[in-house]
Amino acid sequence: MTTSELLRYAGWFALALLALAGAAILSYWAPWYFAWVVGTVMIILITAFAGALYERQAREQGAHGEDPLK
């Protein structure tokens, strides 16, 4: 591992620690703000996943020769 890589990992690690510390503080002082952060990220991820799932379903159905419009 080169030094720059090591530094990068250290940087990410520090960021993760910072995020954890932030989460700990936020969840203590401001439980609902914390809920918003977690909840919004979760809603975005689920929504994005739902979009990706659509692609998959469309592919599978397309393989069976179904055309929704006809």
């Binding site: 979760m42 809603i43 689920i46 929504t47 739902a50 979009g51 799932l53 659509y54 929704p68």
Partner: peptide, 13 residues
């Protein structure tokens, strides 16, 4: 249809 799908899930949660 894609928009409907994503919005439905988004709205549900």
């Amino acid at each position: 249809r894609r928009s409907f799908r994503m919005a439905a899930i988004f709205g549900l949660f």
